[in-house]
Simulated scan of single mutants.
Amino acid sequence: MSLVPKVRLTGGLEVCRVLNGMWQVSGAHGAVDPVKAVQAMDLYMSSGLTSFDMADIYGPAEEIYGNFYSQLKSREGGTPSVQGLTKWVPRPGPMNRKVVENAVERSLRRMQVDTLDCLQFHYWDYNDKRYLEALGHLSDMQREGTIRELSLTNFDTQHLEEIVDKGIRISSNQVQYSLIDRRPAARMEEFCLKHDIKLLTYGTLGGGLLSERYLTSAEPKGKAELYTASLSKYKNMVDTWGGWNLFQELLNVLSSIAKHHSCSIASVATRYILDQPAVGGVIVGCRLGVPGAEHIHDTLQSFRVELSPQDLSEIEGVLKRSRDLMSLIGDCGAEYRG
């Protein structure tokens, strides 16, 4: 097993600095064989990548994790050295204790665990203040030992501050953060550093766009070329950021840096975000059970790369010519709330 760096969250849970993302088993990236998916998780585990990120709305993700966890428990005995971070993504509505308990118990049952390592709460509508009621109940359940780390997903800085001011301890906030989308650096980073809140980031590889595959390639268009939900989502982000020509300039710079460090573009892109001050970990999507779709080597390589001031200057030379996504979209998560 490789020595993979970890970060400690405020409740004491240690997670890998690169987490295995399970959005890709939701069905939006093609059919998934649950048996093969469980088998594939062993590859990540044996490489030292022991932290898995999922959600109640990611199709069978929690059940797949639960089957994996159960097999590990039988094989190893005791409590497996694996971390399961899930999300609760309710539609706005009643948020009394029973509603919250039912959601938590469903995840416990699916994941086949007695305690949730980390529950990351997302809420669609800030105008419906019942998200504060839900977080109050979740905080109580954390004190009771049902939840170890209480976290958020796609909350902006203003509402993160509101929640913290209510006395609710938040361990992390999961947000989009990449060379394309650097909005967390505008406001959220400073607040998170002040309150010991880690950023867990997704979209860091742009659904695969930040790779050699798209270097010097024609601009992908339509469902045939943007054939996964990730590719479609992050191609739209590239368009807003500056377009395909500027993106090609960025890939060229990243390719040159990657060759100098004997690694991949993905490793450079991951390292850049890992080095940002408030970032605890980067979530890299896993197409579990799809042969040849593992990128474990690139992930492990990102831990040994050290970007020089010259590397950063070359990257910044491209990024400074991009559009300001903070002014175009708004703070983190604004794209999900219209």
Rank of each mutant, 00 (worst) to 15 (best):
V282P: 08
M22D: 00
L226N: 09
G84M: 14
E212S: 15
S267C: 09
V164P: 01
R213Q: 14
K194G: 00
P94A: 14
S107A: 09
M95F: 02
V164G: 00
K320R: 15
Q83H: 12
Q248S: 03
Q158Y: 10
G93M: 12
H122K: 08
M22H: 01
D196W: 01
I147C: 03
S178G: 14
P90Q: 12
K233Q: 14
R323S: 14
S264H: 08
L13K: 09
V279C: 10
H29K: 07
E294Y: 03
L209I: 15
Q120G: 02
C118P: 02
V282T: 09
G206M: 06
S308V: 02
Q176W: 00
L72M: 15
G243H: 12
L209S: 05
N252C: 12
G280Q: 08
E62F: 10
L288A: 12
S262A: 14
Y272D: 08
D56L: 09
D275G: 06
C286K: 06
S262Q: 15
L274W: 08
G206D: 03
V164R: 09
S255W: 10
K221G: 01
I197A: 00
Q24D: 05
V282G: 07
E62L: 11
F68P: 07
R110P: 00
L135M: 15
L251P: 02
L274P: 12
A31N: 12
Y131Q: 09
P80N: 10
D275M: 13
L49K: 01
C16E: 12
E14G: 04
Q142V: 11
H137V: 11
G203I: 04
P60H: 10
G93I: 10
A293K: 07
T270F: 03
T216L: 11
V4F: 11
G59R: 07
L254D: 05
Q120C: 11
L210V: 15
N127M: 14
L307A: 02
Q176P: 00
M237N: 13
W124F: 08
G78E: 06
E335W: 13
S46A: 13
M41H: 04
S151Q: 04
L19K: 01
C118K: 04
S70K: 15
I257A: 07
V282E: 06
G93S: 14
L19M: 15
R271P: 01
E294V: 04
L19H: 00
L13M: 11
V82C: 13
S327C: 07
Y131L: 11
A103T: 03
H195V: 04
V175M: 02
D114N: 13
G167D: 03
N96W: 04
V113M: 08
D311F: 02
V268M: 12
R97H: 08
Q142P: 05
A218S: 14
V238F: 05
D331S: 11
G84I: 13
N173L: 03
V15H: 01
R106W: 00
N96A: 13
E62N: 15
F303P: 09
E14H: 09
Q301Y: 00
E316H: 12
H295I: 09
S232M: 14
K129Y: 05
V164M: 11
D181E: 13
Y227H: 14
K36I: 00
T299C: 12
